[in-house]
Design a protein around this nucleic acid. Structure first.
Lengths: 198, 198
DNA sequence: CTTGTTTTATGATTTAAGTCATAAAATACA
DNA sequence: TGTATTTTATGACTTAAATCATAAAACAAG
């Protein structure tokens, strides 16, 4: 997260996106650095028959879409507002200038990329070798540490829909629903009027 | 890739690893920066029943295992020498000092992490939504761009075993063998005495 | 408040990839 | 050079998750 003051000093502008509005699309070349001021954004892919895979979900103060910006490559996925969102856009040249003039920002960027790489490593191994219950629990436990799940008397509220869990783990909704029920039966999590707690 | 001179200036030491020797293990805390001088290294996970998932394969001049080093987190996977290898080890404190004193290195690190994140994004979407033929072709095409595949009169030689392709794509050997045959039949690749070309 | 949409839910059925068994060819190695 | 191990290969069979169908509950929007 880069402070709004610094972003604005280098010419970042605020832009509003409606719920479900596309922020950028797979296949286009990046021209901005994006950082969320408010709202929620997902990055995802759609395969040929419309099946979605969610690469990640991002919240307030988080940035997204940097890798292709640094590599001059096309975006490998779409960015879509999950809620009405306000986002800082900083043009690439200004962003690079900011990095050059503020070496400490580089360290922040590195830590951020490292964190995302870590998540992807863990989930990649899960998705390709583990069974549904393991995958879902791993996602949830990661979410408790890194997404903004709130804790109350029932435990952490997992505020993902079953569909989202499926799209993040490579499972179908029905499988997620059945898996969550099985995990409840085993005492790994609680379902209180359809909401999932851990 | 950081030049050997700079690495040595900050106290990096060369270490030899035999084929199949473990360089570091999942679950331990990082204490070094690793960069390959010669040889080949894989990072991989093993699930409960011994099934392997290869996170990535690294060659001469490439570094690996940085994310947990920056995050002070445990390694999420094992690093193993695929061939006899010589590797530079630079202790963490020296590495951090080197970064602070050489801001341009940060940019290189960022680009490297960005590249790996890009690969993981692409493969994650493949593994969770695409069928075997699509997955295998994507891996191969990525490999042509980023692994050291050599081109000859038959095309690019894909110097991965069927098992490795399986462990990189989350498929079983038999499935990979059948998939490669199907792809050959469709003219997507060639098999010349058991070697795969594209 | 009513209506339309999304989310959760469950049962029956299908299927693609995994598993198991077995073996030949190639390669490593001692 | 001979033996052991790894890699590629194929057929038969099993199975876990996907698919399909259908619906109730919850939520959102006008």
């Amino acid at each position: 997260m880069i402070t709004p003051e610094l972003l604005e000093k280098y010419g970042a502008v605020k832009k509003s996106f409606d719920k479900n509005e596309i922020i950028f699309e797979e296949g286009i070349f990046p021209s901005n650095y994006y950082q969320i001021l408010s709202g929620e954004v997902k990055m995802s892919n759609y395969n040929d028959d419309g099946r979605e895979f969610i690469q990640g979900i991002f919240y307030k103060n988080q940035s997204f879409g940097e890798p292709p910006l640094f590599l001059n490559q096309k975006y490998p996925a779409n960015a879509i507002a999950v809620e009405d969102s306000e986002i800082f856009l900083l043009p690439k040249v200004n962003f690079i200038k900011m990095l050059e003039e503020n070496p400490k920002i580089s360290i922040k960027i590195i830590e951020n990329l490292a964190q995302r790489l870590y998540y992807k490593s863990v989930m990649a191994a899960e998705i390709s070798t583990q069974e549904p219950e393991h995958r879902v629990l791993k996602l949830i436990d990661h979410g408790i540490a890194y997404f903004n799940f709130q804790k109350d008397k029932n435990g952490y509220l997992i505020n993902f829909t079953r569909q989202q869990i499926g799209d993040l783990t490579g499972l179908r909704v029905e499988t997620v629903i059945r898996t969550i029920k099985a995990l409840e039966k085993k005492g790994e999590l609680k379902i209180i009027n359809r909401k999932v707690y851990r």
